[in-house]
Design a protein around this nucleic acid. Structure first.
Lengths: 170, 170
DNA sequence: CTTGTTTGATATGATCTATAACAATTATCA
DNA sequence: TGATAATTGTTATAGATCATATCAAACAAG
């Protein structure tokens, strides 16, 4: 699949069929059965969504992954790194650098657990909660709102439920 | 987002809510609003789909990206590297190694164009067409069929159309 | 012919993903 | 209890993916 962000605009240009008038790009390539393959559509849609997410939340300098961590820490205070990482499907070794980044920005803290002195309890800081609140607002009013506008509320819900079904049951 | 393949199973375990009976894992983390974010669901679904694609087409040793290239070459013979790469959203520098792989396996060939001796015309070999045919069959009978089974034909079509809409219009 | 552009290619860096291994700590159980 | 195994955070590392700059060869425009 391998769909890059910058080149996507070229592909989009190649995708759209223009009327058979002067200045037609009748040299557009045929997508063929590619249009019918869910994986291809899924990948391209995902890149678009992430791209827009980054744009919408750019003032806060948060990636989708970082946003998901902050959300999870907020809903699950007192958990350790392994629990958070596993829930998000992040491998623990890779989660270390990610937490280093969030902690250096003072969005969360690691605290040695008194029960199990191996593990680090993770908690949002006040600043972390504030940033998360602003991020949630940006995502809701800019990102998800735009999606609702494009698909309609009912369709968006249907889409979400099918994706969740695939993620869990497939 | 950053959802790894191997850890996804753990997350799936954490996702499902079990009845409040004996042997409940009531230490499951709360996903909170994460479940409502399309980007998150999209990423996880995409990983699952690609994972299954690789499984289904494993005997042919084809990645989704390679499959998409073969499909496009079949429908668009006589195009050069830039055209194919752009259409798939692959950057030309990265497309070189990819073609090297396919060509070394004799699935396609680069031929210097006589019109424009800078460019390489890409064509499937007979072996490439044969592999593509087998891949299509595997994908249709194993991969996409399983999706149809999970979602139903109508839902699958609706999902595909929404994803395509996002990819093009968002 | 000179200048500028396009094509395939190389080099390179950044990011993401994945595995192995280690010290510190805890759990197991003979 | 004490030896062994397992877990936690971490480091190191390798691979894959993605992106930019640059180059020589070929073409295009003036």
């Amino acid at each position: 699949m391998t769909v890059s962000k910058t080149a996507a605009v070229n592909a989009a240009k190649a995708l759209r069929k223009e009327p058979a008038d002067p200045a037609v790009d009748n040299d557009a390539l045929l997508m063929g059965e590619l249009s019918d393959h869910l994986g291809y559509a899924l990948k391209r849609a995902q890149l678009k969504i992430f791209e827009d997410f980054l744009r919408c939340v750019a003032p806060l300098q948060l990636t989708p992954a970082q946003f998901s961590v902050l959300l999870l820490l907020d809903k699950n205070p007192g958990r350790n790194q392994t629990e958070i990482a596993n829930t998000l499907g992040i491998l623990r070794p890779n989660f270390v650098a990610m937490l280093d980044g969030l902690e250096s920005r003072e969005l969360c803290v690691r605290v040695r657990s008194t029960n199990d002195r191996r593990s680090h309890i993770l908690m949002l800081t006040d600043k972390g909660r504030a940033v998360l609140a602003r991020a949630k607002k940006l995502v809701a009013t800019k990102h998800e709102a735009r999606l609702n506008e494009l698909l309609g509320s009912a369709n968006r819900a249907a889409l979400l439920s099918m994706l969740a079904k695939i993620a869990v049951e497939f």
